[in-house]
Design a protein around this nucleic acid. Structure first.
Lengths: 242, 242
DNA sequence: CGCTCAGTTGACAAAAATCAAAGGCGGTGG
DNA sequence: CCACCGCCTTTGATTTTTGTCAACTGAGCG
């Protein structure tokens, strides 16, 4: 069916990402129902697409492993990365309104997702109140996240944007058991720039500036945050200094 | 309870905004259930707040009349208008994730909203499938709208942003029976600027430029669009000319 | 009638984009 | 195994866009 991906079947109840993408405190009976939400899993190779703009919407996807970007594009070639998603996060919400996806989801490294047919989610939501509420929260969380991105794009300067970006990434990675201070960027400078509303040269220069100031160490896509407090100060400096 | 607002009770089934905020094709029995979604109506005076950041979340609101802005703010005084909402649109979705609102909703003219307690929405959603799906669509629509704003903020120049803004406003007003070419802005230049990620002076200059070029007529907050095609060309020019 | 606030406009400064060049890393094929 | 190629990245010089600061206008209101 799809070339750079394969499919097979499994179950949620003993998934180690359970607490990231499912409601907590379900009875074993409810858990059994919720297990039915995931139809199959699907593997996507680096560079492969999970879904693309215009494609019919059928399912939401819970990321099990790997890293994705979502991006919208216009006919005239404009392109905007709308988010980077990692394990435990849900993608595909954009497709619900019009029964078609309105953005592309691209794997930035080999990935595996749980396919959750949306009609099944709706069905089981009607029975399991906690799941219903959970779905609402996930969508609301995405809306609030995007408010944050709008604030970033609408009112921050380049350094503030990059600082906020790094802090956000490392915080999410930390919640998944990774280091608080070290991370590997899965995306290019250009993709970071697209997400932050900057050109790749500006992203690169801003990284260099942070390095000069001893705030981070950068070796290719490996970043070590040496002074997280400095990053935080930059984010909410509102340009009081320099 | 709240000073600049009053409350009283009513019903959806014969509301003239029905097709804007409710699913279509409900049986009269279902309609009866859905009527229960709206607890009361509430009036908000110009400048008044429907809800504010940090406030406990209880309800979504369907705008019956009037015009709102929603905005997020940070401790350091940064401020970002995240949207302008008009009759038939739903606000308050941001509150679902954390049971508290994360933005302010301010009436830009005297307004009236239908208060829909969210627990009641969830309850009735479980019975009326069409309502359940409708709620999902509304949230997804908001997510997609915000993607569009991110594209605007991340990749457009001032003229493109303002042109897109005007076209969007007039299109939504037209869907509500107003003119395709004339509109009254309910917000200040500063609020437009905040939404578009520009300073008020830039908004003003860009308006002036459009006027010079004969694309629009502007008299205070009254705008007449003389050449909608020119606006469309500007929006997806991606700067091929100029 | 004078005040306040929104809006406009100009001159200048700052930030980021653009254009250009060059270095480095990883992968491929000889 | 090494050389080459393509792409990502960095850095510099310059231009463009937008922000900042300031002055002024005009509308609405007490």
């Amino acid at each position: 069916m799809q070339d750079a991906s394969s499919t097979f079947r499994v179950a949620c109840s003993n998934c180690n990402l359970r607490e990231l993408c499912l409601p907590v405190g379900l009875s074993s009976e409810q858990m059994e129902r919720v297990d039915d939400v995931v139809a199959v899993r699907r593997k996507i190779k680096r560079g492969g697409m999970l879904f693309r703009n215009g494609e019919a919407f059928t399912s939401l996807y819970a990321i099990r492993t790997g890293f994705f970007k979502t991006c919208v594009a216009t006919e005239d070639g404009r392109d905007q990365v709308t988010g980077f998603q990692m394990a435990g996060e849900i993608i595909g919400l954009d497709g619900i309104v019009n029964d078609h996806h309105s953005c592309d989801a691209v794997a930035l490294e080999d990935a595996e997702v749980c396919v959750m047919p949306f009609d099944r989610i709706e069905e089981i939501s009607r029975e399991v109140t906690a799941l219903q509420h959970h779905v609402h929260k996930i969508m609301s969380r995405e809306i609030v996240r995007e408010h944050g991105v709008m604030l970033l794009l609408g009112s921050m300067r380049a350094e503030e944007r990059l600082a906020a970006f790094l802090l956000n990434l490392v915080q999410r990675l930390h919640a998944r058991g990774f280091s608080q201070s070290e991370l590997v960027l899965r995306m290019t400078r250009e993709e970071i720039g697209s997400y932050l509303g900057l050109k790749l040269e500006t992203v690169s220069r801003t990284f260099s500036k942070f390095v000069e100031e001893g705030i981070v160490e950068v070796k290719q896509r490996h970043v070590r945050i040496q002074d997280p407090e400095a990053l935080k100060r930059i984010v909410n400096s509102q340009q009081e200094f320099r």
